[in-house]
Design a protein around this nucleic acid. Sequence first.
DNA 1: CTTTGACCAAATAAGCGTATTCGGTCAAGA
DNA 2: TCTTGACCGAATACGCTTATTTGGTCAAAG
Lengths: 237, 237
Amino acid sequence: MARPPADPDRRRERAHRVLDAAAELILRWGYDKTTIADVARAAGVAKGTIYLHWKTRELLFAALLRRERVATLEEVRRAAPGTLRELVGAVAAEVMRRPLMRAVLLADTDVLGKLTTMKRERPSDPGQAEALNRMLGALRKHGAIRPDLTDAEHVSVLTSVVFGFLTAARLTPEPYRVPPERLAELLADTAHRALEAGREPSPRDARAIAEAVSAYVGHVAGVAGRKLESALEGQLP
Amino acid sequence: MARPPADPDRRRERAHRVLDAAAELILRWGYDKTTIADVARAAGVAKGTIYLHWKTRELLFAALLRRERVATLEEVRRAAPGTLRELVGAVAAEVMRRPLMRAVLLADTDVLGKLTTMKRERPSDPGQAEALNRMLGALRKHGAIRPDLTDAEHVSVLTSVVFGFLTAARLTPEPYRVPPERLAELLADTAHRALEAGREPSPRDARAIAEAVSAYVGHVAGVAGRKLESALEGQLP
DNA sequence: CTTTGACCAAATAAGCGTATTCGGTCAAGA
DNA sequence: TCTTGACCGAATACGCTTATTTGGTCAAAG
């Protein structure tokens, strides 16, 4: 829209305040029952103000989800994972303490309501897949992951395991329940044992591996961050 | 009900024919939209005849699900798994080719409709948990599973992984898809690496382990089989 | 004795007009 | 220039009546 700014900083702060309100409301009532008026009231602005940031309700929530994604990825980046295990562990720990991120990953219709389908319809960025393949290639080359599995198999196992641990947290019968932090460790450990090669890599390989993981996280976080910037200005992708 | 039999064998055969029809219809239309009249027509009997077997619609479908469970477990028993890995592999392979069993395990509301909640409400037999604990205890004692994990952690990891692989089959992005049989292998392999101890057990231990696994499967299949018998006669548990 | 299908009450769906809510706009005011 | 909230049309929710379907029964037929 190229809305003429107030003070850019204050404008940005206000956008975040609105998103904070939206985040709380969507978790409490779900997308379908969260109205713009509600969000405006909770954020302490007028309804019209929200439309100065985003042209539609949908764009507002798109920005919210992108922000959540970026926050998650930034935390992961901060953890500076240097192996697949550490990467999975960092992602798991972060996602488990972020109900909104979890809702998105699990396509929780209670929270996402009609957004659920839209999200799924949107084809994931081919660049993301490419970055993933690049990391897998590097990990394979430097002996970090099992050579007897194809890329498709690695991805299948990884998504299955991650998805399973995230869902099963609420699904496991009572007496066997395990606290989320411990679950994150177990998830990382499972991914490690299922996918990583047994042998210790040489220091040289270890450095290359850490580099590949870091580059992957950096790339994904970078793309997400850039998308967030436009989303905060009301634009779509 | 203690319904006086026709010829018991023919009676039993007819019950199975009705369940066959019900199985096909519930998968095609879901529980909510599958009527007794439909089932009767598809099975080639009159509606009243169905009520000679089961007092209510719910009992009919309870019998159907029990039968599916028994069929699955019998196949697993036939595979004669002697390790945790083989057990998981057999279960996975069998469940993956049984859409109804999968729907039950995943609580698929499209298929199970209003049955979904009922199933979940029903507290699982404490005997089942006890049998599972018994097997875990034996596996632990004979060094088959990792001693650094608690029972709760073993169960959490196992359910997470199984659940994840079963769901993620339909969830993994297109280019990475892997055929179900291969997925079952990968699932077994993942459970193996995540939960089983690294060292080869002694022949003596291996025998005890196989015995524990076999006893577990035998117990579960046995209980399920007995429940099926009464379910086929229209009784509840 | 066994099986059937017409039959009934209860639940569910369909129709429909009304009331309310909500996303989005914009003239007025700060 | 930026913010607001009254305002509008569209969509959704609601209430209510009617029509259809469906689980379950049972007298009659086989």
